[in-house]
């Protein structure tokens, strides 16, 4: 897995990582979401790019990825049932509607908190 210590400081506009951070992204089915799920993901991607980090989202579970992010639209968090598998070594993050780690946050805070958590894992 790529870690942040592998990532050099680069001049503005240049990416710090040659190989993009590969994120396996899973959306829940979206029957009655409390949050705008794609908007949260878009904002997360912007946060990576604004910090000169290349990131690639992958919806295909067959590829090797650095992270798994579960984007659940509500606190029921359907995705957690089958995806929070401790047997796999891939770090996993889960959004449960307007919550992360089962703590309520605003929709605006969600991508920021998630981004910080990912950086912590990468470092």
């Amino acid at each position: 897995m790529q870690t942040e210590s592998d990532l050099p400081d680069m001049p503005d506009g240049q990416c710090r990582n040659e190989r993009p951070i590969m994120i396996h992204l899973k959306y829940c089915g979206g029957c009655n979401p409390e949050i705008d799920r794609p908007a949260v993901v878009k904002r997360l991607e912007e946060l990576f790019l604004s910090n000169n980090l290349k990131v690639e989202f992958d919806f295909n579970s067959n590829r090797n990825t650095d992270l798994l992010i579960l984007v659940n639209g509500c606190p029921h968090a359907c995705l957690e049932k089958d995806n929070m598998n401790s047997a796999t070594m891939t770090p996993c993050f889960s959004i449960q509607g307007a919550m992360i780690d089962y703590r309520p946050v605003t929709e605006e805070e969600l991508p920021v908190i998630l981004y910080e958590k990912i950086l912590t894992i990468l470092s």
Binding site: P75, H76, A77, Q96, D101, Y102
Partner: peptide, 14 residues
């Protein structure tokens, strides 16, 4: 069935 986990690990209803 639409319940959720809480910070404490216990479960709450919808």
């Amino acid at each position: 069935y639409e319940g959720r986990k809480t910070q404490s690990g216990s479960y709450n209803i919808n």
